[in-house]
Design a protein around this nucleic acid. Structure first.
Lengths: 350, 350
DNA sequence: ACTCCATGCTAAAGCGCATTAGTTCATGAC
DNA sequence: GTCATGAACTAATGCGCTTTAGCATGGAGT
């Protein structure tokens, strides 16, 4: 039974380099107070010993925890259906890794539990900042985080209208998605293909982006004089997606096109169409909001709104770093996702 | 601009309760040395102040970091295709949350980078233990973690044959999946349906479970005297899954049944069948290893190997907690996944 | 009566680092 | 030759917690 190696500390470096601990600290943190020669020597010894700063000790002496947090509040049932998050996280990490920041991750059931986690992390000194996803109307989280003094980036930010009226927090940035533009491009596409009856099978109604999309759909429809256009909300699950699809298709004057708020429901919708003997895109056109492997794997392929989720994650992380560096809060609009037509709306596409 | 609240410390509690800091520590950690009355009083004050221990300070005084790590080494391209991980993580968290342990999460490109992360986390004092996924043949990770003295649970552990011959590490548990049993149940199912030519479209060949499945398939085929059975490896992506499917279907004596190592490739395979005009399950039967929304959303539904991934995560986390509590390493075989027949193998199923 | 020993508590040290306040020593100004 | 100056470095303190050692107090044992 081997005894595990002891972690080297600055004291070890100091001894080996024949200087004081403070000199080591200065040398390694690019602070003035040591000669270039000493700095170099200390650096070499540190390297040689494989020294890494203890985040615990750093955090304790006021340097922050070198960690950002991300909490996912989704009921267990609708979890794991979206590949969105893993891609988002992988983008986030690319940026965080450069600064050696860790990502503390947690999955909880609801927003109340999420707030509890934030409080705990704050009290435990665990994180320096947060990435907040799934912003919602009357969201308690920005206010809470502000009162705790924790910087944060709201991913897929709040409606400017909402946040203009509300308080602006000095350390909370918003990275908004261009839902209005995206929805307009979808309606455009479907309109040009001749569709006049469109149903939007949306996600959770309390989420801010669901509301934005619903509003945008109505606006786009009004602009074109379309009256038979509406949104139906679900919980993002395949089950509710399929049920909603059956419901609208069974109604009188069923839609000729359906826009789904995620890939999973779109695939479920495609299966419902097959089950009812409807030809896609002949009898029913399908559009998925957010592309993924799924949309490319079905037959026909699903027309989808493609965005570079990984880049989105990178931008979010970058915005958070700016805040951590003392920058002031910003409010940015992310680039508009591109609509990629495939076989579920256009006959000759694959 | 409001000044954020200061975190309460044990000193604050001590002052308010009129005792020394040490008494507070004893009281809050259920250590002997304080009277029940004092203990209760201290507890009340702590509660009232909303005190939470600073993990940084705790970690520094030798209590561990109250955090476990999980690194996902997947090339960016194949990332985000599997819902498996999010479900696994959600199960893991349920168990960790009870003990207020955090989960430090990182996505990297390959195993070498993963090892780097382990070294860094170790030196930085960031984690107390690790969950290791995607074990592979000649895996460098168990040895590394052992030498660093970091407890770990290998999720989907190594072959007993392999690890028997190799060194057994005192603080590394293995949670094995019953790939052999599962593969046998699949072959059983297909054999009874009359299939004699079966192809297994596997995942990354270097992964231990890919090898186990491949071996098990051969064994199961031999046991039944089947000669036209083989495995093909891929990178788990829909692209390679589809390509492999096209390749085997184009060969002479094409299979009548294909077993896919994940849900994404199975769906891609289904699309290829549709594209070639093959009836499923009439001309081609399809089985997916690991169920997900996907398998239920296609038409026909995909026969899949169902396991409770969240429970699997819970078991893994529990095993890690046992190690952190000083328990000795164990080697457990997880329960066998159940094969759920659906329309892709059985005609009258949905 | 005395020691002996729990009991309930306080004082102090230490974890690894950053930081502030010295200390030493050469250099340059005058 | 003296004195101020700044560079290069050391000593000491604190972050919030755990832990060990120490210190009274009071009751049991002989």
């Amino acid at each position: 039974m081997r005894r595990p190696a002891r972690r080297p500390t600055m004291k070890d470096i100091a001894r080996r380099a024949g200087v004081s601990e403070s000199a080591v600290s200065f040398a390694l943190n690019d602070r003035p107070g040591v000669s270039p020669a000493t700095r170099e020597r200390v650096r070499r010894v540190a390297e040689q010993l494989g020294w890494q700063p203890s985040t615990a000790a750093r955090a304790l002496s006021g340097e922050g925890a070198a960690t950002v947090g991300l909490v996912l509040a989704r009921p267990a049932r609708t979890l794991g259906v979206e590949s969105f998050f893993l891609r988002l996280v992988s983008g986030v990490q690319e940026v965080l890794a450069e600064r050696r920041l860790g990502l503390l991750f947690q999955v909880v059931e609801d927003v109340a539990a999420e707030c509890e986690v934030y409080r705990r992390w704050w009290a435990e000194h665990r994180v320096d900042g947060l990435l907040v996803v799934d912003p919602r109307h009357d969201d308690p989280r920005p206010g809470l985080l502000d009162s705790l003094g924790l910087p944060a980036v709201i991913i897929g930010g709040l409606e400017p209208a909402l946040s203009d009226g509300a308080v602006e927090y000095p350390a909370i940035s918003q990275l908004r998605t261009d839902d209005a533009g995206a929805m307009a491009s979808i309606v455009d596409h479907l309109f040009q293909l001749g569709h006049r009856r469109i149903v939007h099978i949306a996600g959770l109604p309390e989420l801010a982006h669901t509301q934005r999309r619903t509003h945008s759909l109505r606006a786009a429809a009004n602009a074109r004089g379309l009256t038979e256009v509406r949104s139906v909300s679900t919980d993002y699950s395949d089950t509710e997606g399929a049920a909603a699809t059956r419901a609208v298709l069974a109604g009188e004057r069923p839609p000729t096109a359906i826009v789904y708020d995620n890939d999973v429901m779109a695939v479920a919708g495609l299966a419902v169409a097959a089950e009812r003997g409807l030809a896609v895109p002949g009898d029913l056109a399908i559009v998925a909001w957010d592309d993924s492997v799924l949309c490319r794997s079905t037959h026909p392929g699903l027309t989808a709104l493609v965005r570079d989720t990984s880049a989105f994650g990178r931008r979010a992380a970058t915005a958070l770093l700016a805040l951590l560096d003392g920058g002031s809060a910003v409010h940015v609009l992310d680039e508009r996702p591109r609509l990629t037509p495939r076989g579920s709306t256009v006959r000759d596409a694959r």
